[in-house]
Design a protein around this nucleic acid. Sequence first.
DNA 1: CTGTTAGCGCTTTCAA
DNA 2: TTGAAAGCGCTAACAG
Lengths: 333, 333
Amino acid sequence: MGKITIQDIANMCQVSKSSVSRYLNGGYVSEENKEKIKYAIEKTGFQSNFFAKRLKTKNSNLIGVVIPRIDSITVSKVLNGINNICEENNYTILMQSSNLDIKKEISCINSLYNQGVDGIIVYTLDITNEHIKAYNNLKIPIIFLNQKNDKVNCICIDDYKAGYIMAEHFYKNNHKNIVFLGVNEQDKSVGINRKKGFYDFYKQNVKDYTINFVETDFSFKKAYNMGENVIKYKPTGVICATDNICLGLMLYLNEQGIKIPDEISVAGFGGYEVSSVMKPSITTIEFDYELLGKIATKNILNLIKNIDNQEKVDINLKLILGESIKNIGGSYE
Amino acid sequence: MGKITIQDIANMCQVSKSSVSRYLNGGYVSEENKEKIKYAIEKTGFQSNFFAKRLKTKNSNLIGVVIPRIDSITVSKVLNGINNICEENNYTILMQSSNLDIKKEISCINSLYNQGVDGIIVYTLDITNEHIKAYNNLKIPIIFLNQKNDKVNCICIDDYKAGYIMAEHFYKNNHKNIVFLGVNEQDKSVGINRKKGFYDFYKQNVKDYTINFVETDFSFKKAYNMGENVIKYKPTGVICATDNICLGLMLYLNEQGIKIPDEISVAGFGGYEVSSVMKPSITTIEFDYELLGKIATKNILNLIKNIDNQEKVDINLKLILGESIKNIGGSYE
DNA sequence: CTGTTAGCGCTTTCAA
DNA sequence: TTGAAAGCGCTAACAG
């Protein structure tokens, strides 16, 4: 570590270390001393000791981020948003990954807290009682992303609405025999809400229809492998819980010589850039994850400063019309 | 911050704070006191103050990571590798992004250093004199990723070799009129090395050939827009500097009704998962970026412990044969 | 095995 | 405007 301390600078300038500290923190220092100190600091390249400083003052300008995993496009978009705002405000990110382990999420939160971060953003898998407990115990602000719970601060994409909108689109294209290729319910937002929105639209607005559920995971490969189970149901359309899942399914269908969208329509969620490159391009719902990260960060910085302006935010939901859905005609006028 | 301190625990247990400290750090404590202390800590949920601890001891168990940007598949794979090893060793990542700004890279390094990290991994854009200066001044280990320079520790993908291997593959498929759709030379690894490897193979092994260079950037969109310039040269094959660029080009060719690989062969670098889903799937060279991150982290942890075992490492290079290159016949037997 | 003591480098009263 | 002094919470001799 940098050997020279505030005391060294003080000695060099024949002043007390208090004066140097004052210089550093914008207190009263005579012009004359200011010059001397400035010179000494520049000459030595002095940098005040981070830990000593933080031991006295209470904030660290560190914000903790807990993510479920790193190698995900969604997560990196969120991180990008967080990073942008942190940068503007001179905060540094302390990052930990829970590796999709809900228990670990709690320990990450505690670990981050213990390391003196001023606030924590958790891209969470689920908000359990443990989470709420941590939220209440820790005396720093925490914001949860990706899940909703009234007892804590949280911001999320409206997955339910996304599912609902997509269902409406399927219905308008006259699909009534559908497979929902989704993930298990451990994931609240994708596994439950997205699905529920889709099902609810049909339940509320359509008379005769069938939706069969096929479970997969988030991986491209597994989706590919589940293709066989999907086509067993002979659906006219398949809604995939993510674009990545859709990609996997498409590969399977391609290999089977099943034409998209002529023989089967498909769609996803996510709005990844690659979705538009596919032949056919994928119909999907785009979420502005970067914005999610930005808003979360702005809010946490406000909370740190005790500003409570959690204005109601709406993260954009955009239906991207691709070529992967065919209107198969029928009763819808 | 957590109000209770080591002193509080000591008071509760009627022992001195040294005993508590010893308990925490594995020194001699009688069984009897151990029990008492353990109980008190559990009851209060005491957590030792990170900053106070770091002020005394010299290491922070923090490792700094500087990346060029976050929303990149490559970067997130590297981060994933770094994170895995950090986790195993109880280190936390302090992350900063340079946003592709080479000046900022230096300031990120300094900022991280100033925040007391034990070592820094820099996924660098270029190793300039400023970098070398920082490397020498800072009294903590630094490892650079992605660029080679003898004066500093660095680990990289062998981009030159990747280019060379790909060129050999193009040649075996009898392509002699080629466009290299690449990025500008500010990016050493992709802009220079990858390209040089490709060109060198042809220079060294082939008599009659043409390689035209078309410049683009890393974005999908720009690559798409440059499609027009690419086909002007009427190449039999196009080698793209990244899979993403290749995706952009493919979209353009698709729209123009130009058949891949029948009318034109294409290939990329990167080995992204999506490359295999494309129709046709993309021939590419896969890099093990996660491994790169892992090795870098292992090495930096060793350097922190003053172990100097930088065994020569080789990051895997794998030619993935897709359907995007056609053997157009000819002289090669 | 335990308590006393002396700092780590910095900020912040307080009195001058 | 400045310096002396106290102390943030912890660790690490040292003497017992």
